[in-house]
Amino acid sequence: MKHLILAGVLALGGCGSASELKPASNQHLPVAPYSARATPTATQLLTPNSQARPERSDELLKKSDTRRGDEFDLPPHN
């Protein structure tokens, strides 16, 4: 049982090694987008922009106002 746990820990330990991403030897990075000045690197392609990951808005409600009447909030018509 101890050998199985040790093997699992060693196998997972190898997953943590990180190196710079590079395309395969016979592949190239994608061509530059239409209006880009240069071809983006692998790191730039993997970094999400603000539209893909918007920042969180933590603005708290500072002032509570009562809602005014809605003239279009009518009961259903049969």
Rank of each mutant, 00 (worst) to 15 (best):
residue 49 N to Y: 01
residue 74 L to K: 04
residue 50 S to H: 03
residue 4 L to K: 10
residue 32 A to T: 04
residue 27 Q to M: 14
residue 3 H to R: 11
residue 10 L to W: 13
residue 58 D to Q: 01
residue 52 A to V: 13
residue 34 Y to R: 15
residue 39 T to N: 10
residue 32 A to H: 05
residue 15 C to T: 13
residue 69 G to N: 11
residue 66 T to I: 05
residue 75 P to G: 03
residue 55 E to C: 03
residue 5 I to R: 08
residue 48 P to L: 04
residue 15 C to E: 03
residue 42 A to Q: 06
residue 22 K to P: 03
residue 73 D to N: 13
residue 53 R to M: 11
residue 41 T to Q: 11
residue 53 R to G: 00
residue 4 L to Q: 09
residue 12 L to N: 11
residue 58 D to T: 10
residue 26 N to W: 14
residue 14 G to W: 06
residue 72 F to L: 03
residue 37 R to H: 05
residue 49 N to A: 11
residue 39 T to F: 00
residue 60 L to H: 04
residue 68 R to I: 07
residue 59 E to P: 00
residue 73 D to V: 13
residue 35 S to P: 03
residue 68 R to G: 01
residue 46 L to Q: 03
residue 24 A to C: 14
residue 24 A to N: 14
residue 67 R to V: 05
residue 1 M to G: 15
residue 37 R to A: 14
residue 26 N to S: 14
residue 2 K to G: 15
residue 40 P to S: 12
residue 51 Q to H: 05
residue 10 L to E: 09
residue 6 L to S: 12
residue 44 Q to K: 08
residue 17 S to F: 15
residue 41 T to R: 03
residue 71 E to T: 14
residue 44 Q to S: 11
residue 61 L to W: 02
residue 2 K to D: 07
residue 47 T to P: 00
residue 41 T to W: 00
residue 60 L to Q: 10
residue 3 H to N: 09
residue 48 P to N: 01
residue 16 G to M: 02
residue 30 P to L: 00
residue 44 Q to T: 03
residue 12 L to D: 05
residue 75 P to L: 01
residue 31 V to S: 10
residue 78 N to D: 02
residue 10 L to D: 13
residue 6 L to C: 13
residue 14 G to F: 04
residue 28 H to Q: 12
residue 7 A to S: 15
residue 13 G to F: 09
residue 59 E to C: 00
residue 22 K to S: 14
residue 71 E to M: 12
